[in-house]
Amino acid sequence: MIVGAIYLNDDEIKNHVLVPRHEILDAKEKETVLKKYNVTVEQLPKILNDDAAIKAFGAKVGDVVKITRESVTAGVSIYYRTVI
């Protein structure tokens, strides 16, 4: 975060071509994901809570976000990150 820099608003970020869909998982979904991959929240890849996309999608520290990416190899690929 640079002081004085101009940032995009939430809608502009959400609609940007490079930004995949971020969804915040509820407690139950979170549980399922962690169980499925046999990991703890700390072991998931991370995303900062001041990340532009995270702010736009309104996630909070401790949330797990499901990122649905368009993939060249698999069509759609799903990735999880925890907000730190």
Partner: peptide
């Protein structure tokens, strides 16, 4: 890019 639209981008 990371600063403006996020780490995924």
């Amino acid at each position: 890019i990371a600063d403006t639209v996020g780490i995924e981008a």
